[in-house]
Write a protein that binds this DNA or RNA. Structure first.
Lengths: 355, 355
DNA sequence: ATCGAAGGTTGACACGATTTAACGCAACGG
DNA sequence: CCGTTGCGTTAAATCGTGTCAACCTTCGAT
C-alpha cells in the first residue's frame, strides 16, 4: 500500500482554495457565512440546528452574516448528511374533491407553521399511481407520509416503513397497532343520517352511493342499514354510481324520479347536490316532498339553493391532527405512542330535511 | 509535489471496506447494486441517468440487480451532486378554492407523468407567508416554481431567479419579458359577462366583487365597465366584499335585496352561489326577476339549484400548460423562448341567465 | 498485422452541510 | 498550584450520487 499511488494529481482543475467565490452556482454557502462571521463552518451549522449550543454573542454575529449575505441553506446537502429532510408527503385520492382539499389545507397549515414542505400527490383511482407516488416519496427521503389509502390488500406502506419513514393513515382506521391513524366513524355517521330521516317521518329511504369497494361508502351503508334495523321499520333502497360527483348524483336523482322515495341519503355532498338538482328540475319540492341529506358537509352544501343537511366531519381538523401526529412521531420515534384516533361525526340539520 | 502526502490515513475508523452492508440506514445504495451487477458505481449511475450510454446487456444486468435489491435512489444525494432535483414548487392563493385546486390538479398530473414531485403551498392572503414559502422552495432546490402571485410591488420572484430557479406565473400575465406566464384575459371575461347581461335586457347591473387590490377582480370590473360604455346604455353598481366565499356572497345578496338590480355579475362563482341563495330565500326568482352570472365555471356552478351561467376559464388546462412550460424551461434553459400565453375565456350560458 | 476511432466502463473526486472527536480556555475545588 | 470539569469552538471525515477524464475493448480500415 505504499508507493502504488495511482491517484490523479491533486488539484488537476485548479485549486479553488479558500472558498472565496461561494458555491458552484454563485450562491453563498455556509463557508462564506463562517468567514464573514469569523467562525468555522461547524459553528454556523450549530447556529442553524442547535442554537442553544452556541454562545449568544457568536450566534448573533453568525445570524447577522446570514442576513447580510442572503444565505439560503442547501436542503439537499443538509438532508443528505443529516439523513432526513424537512419535507413530508401527502397523498389523497382526488385533489378535486373539496373533502380532500380541506384535509390538505389542514395538513399544509401545520406543516407550514412548523417549517416543513409538503409534497402533495394524488392517487386518482389507480393503485399503480399510488405505488409510483409512494416510491417517489421514498426517493425524496421525506420525513413522513400522510396517506388516504386506496384499497385494502397488499400493504404498500411497507416500502416506506422499511426505510424508516413514518406513516399516518388519514380517513382510514389503521389495521396494524403500530400505525397512527386519524379517521371518522363512518358507520356511526350513516346511522346518524338515517336515524334523522326516520325521525322526520321517512320510511322509504334511498341510499345513493359511490362504489362499495370504497370503504367509506360501505361503512356508511352499514350504518344506514343498522339504523333501519334498530328502528324496526323503514326500508333502504340503493343506487350505486361509479363516481361521486354532482353529475353522477344528477343521474341517480333522475333514476329516482320514477318512484320517489320519502328521503334520500347520499354518501357524499357532491352526489347530494346532483340529486337535489334533478329533483328541483322536476318541481319535486325538497324537503316538502323528499328529504335529502348528504355527507361531509363541504362548504358548498350550505350554499346550495336548498341548504343541505349533512354529516359533518371535522375535515380541516383531521388534517391538522394527522399532521401533528406525524411530526410527533418523526421528532421522537422512540417515545412516540402510536394511536388510532377516531372522531365521531356530527349531524348538521339544514333546510333539506326541515319541512 | 511528490511525497507531501498529507491525506488522512485511510480507514481511520475501521475500514468498511467493500461496501457490504449497504447505506447507513440499512438500505441498498448504488454501490451494492454495482457489486451485484458486476459493474462500477459510475455505470449504475449512467443506467439511471443516461441509459443510452450503456450497452443493452449491462443495462439489463443493472436493472435486474436494482429490481432484486429493491434499490431506491437517494434523492438528496442525487440533487446535491447534480445541482438540481426532481421537485417543483406550486404556490397558490388558497387551497380551498376550487379554481386553484383545479389548477393544482393540472399541474400535478403533468408533473406526475414526467416524474416530478410537486411541493404545494398556499400564501393565504399573507405576503409574509408567500415570502416564507418562496424561501423554503429555494432551500429545497426545486427545479422551478409555479406561482399565482399575491400582489404587485416588490419582485419576490427575484430571490428565486438569482438562484437560477425557473419561474412561471400562473393566472397572472408576466410583467417582465423574460418570464413565462399563463393567464386568462379577465378584462375580456368581464366584458363578455356584462355584454351577455345587456343582451338579455338587463340595464341596472350590480358587480359583486372581492377586494379590488386583487388583480382579477379589478380586471373583471374594468371589462364590465367597458361593456357598458361600448353599449352606450346601462349602469354598473358595485358591491365589494373582503372575501370571495359563498358566505360573503350571501351577505352581498342580502344587501342587494333592498334595491334589486336587473342582473348581478359576480367576480367569482362562490360569490354567485351566495348571492343566489340570498335571492332564492326571499323568493326572488332567478333568472325571471334577476339574472345572475358568475366567474370561473367551477364544477359546483352546474350543480347549483339554478345552474349558474359563468365565464369559463380552462383551469385544469392552465395548470397543465404552465407545468409543461416550466419543464421545458428547466430542460433547456438556453433554447427556451419565454412566452406569455393569454387565453380567452368562454361564456357559459345556463339557466341563471335564461328566462 | 497494425493503427485509429468509437464507444463502454472505470475510479476518484466533488457537491455543501452535519457530525464527532478533540482541543483551548476559564473557572473551580482540593 | 495543579488537576478537573465543562462549555464553546474547530478541523476533518462523511453522507450517496453524478461527473469527467482516462482507460480498455472491439472492430473496421489500411
Amino acid at each position: 500500500m505504499a508507493p502504488s499511488d495511482t491517484r490523479p494529481r491533486a488539484g488537476s482543475r485548479g485549486a479553488r482554495g479558500s472558498a472565496r467565490e461561494g458555491t458552484r452556482d454563485g450562491t453563498v454557502g455556509i463557508k462564506q457565512v463562517a468567514a464573514a462571521a469569523g467562525v468555522s463552518a461547524g459553528t454556523v451549522s450549530n447556529v442553524l440546528n442547535r442554537p442553544e449550543r452556541v454562545s449568544p454573542a457568536t450566534r448573533a454575529r453568525v445570524l447577522a452574516a446570514i442576513g447580510e449575505l442572503g444565505f439560503v441553506r442547501n436542503g439537499s446537502a443538509s438532508s443528505l448528511r443529516a439523513g432526513q429532510g424537512r419535507t413530508v408527503g401527502l397523498m389523497v385520492h382526488d385533489l378535486l374533491n373539496p373533502f380532500f382539499t380541506s384535509l390538505a389545507a389542514g395538513v399544509e397549515d401545520v406543516m407550514s407553521e412548523r417549517g416543513h414542505a409538503v409534497i402533495m400527490c394524488s392517487s386518482g383511482s389507480s393503485p399503480q399511481r399510488e405505488e409510483r407516488n409512494l416510491r417517489m416519496l421514498a426517493e425524496q427521503k421525506v420525513r413522513g407520509v400522510l396517506v388516504t389509502p386506496l384499497e385494502e390488500g397488499p400493504d404498500r406502506l411497507r416500502l416506506l416503513r422499511e426505510r424508516g419513514i413514518a406513516t399516518v393513515m388519514l380517513d382510514h382506521a389503521a389495521t396494524r397497532p403500530q400505525q397512527c391513524s386519524v379517521s371518522v366513524d363512518d358507520v356511526a355517521g350513516g346511522q346518524m343520517a338515517v336515524r334523522h330521516l326516520l325521525e322526520r317521518g321517512a320510511r322509504d329511504i334511498a341510499y345513493v352511493s359511490g362504489p362499495l369497494s370504497i370503504r367509506q361508502c360501505a361503512d356508511r351503508r352499514a350504518g344506514a342499514a343498522r339504523a333501519i334495523a334498530s328502528a324496526g321499520f323503514g326500508a333502504l333502497r340503493e343506487v350505486t354510481m361509479a363516481e361521486m360527483t354532482p353529475r353522477a348524483g344528477q343521474e341517480a336523482g333522475e333514476h329516482l324520479l320514477a318512484e320517489l322515495p320519502d328521503a334520500v341519503f347520499c354518501a357524499n355532498d357532491l352526489l347530494a347536490m346532483g340529486v337535489l338538482r334533478a329533483l328541483l328540475r322536476q318541481e319535486v319540492r325538497v324537503p316538502e316532498r323528499v328529504l335529502l341529506i348528504g355527507y361531509d358537509d363541504i362548504e358548498y352544501a350550505t350554499a346550495s339553493a336548498v341548504p343541505l343537511s349533512s354529516v359533518r366531519q371535522p375535515t380541516y381538523q383531521l388534517g391538522r391532527i394527522a399532521a401533528t401526529q406525524l411530526l410527533d412521531e418523526c421528532d421522537d420515534p422512540g417515545g412516540h405512542a402510536h394511536q388510532q384516533i377516531m372522531f365521531q361525526p356530527e349531524l348538521v340539520v339544514r333546510e333539506s330535511t326541515t319541512p
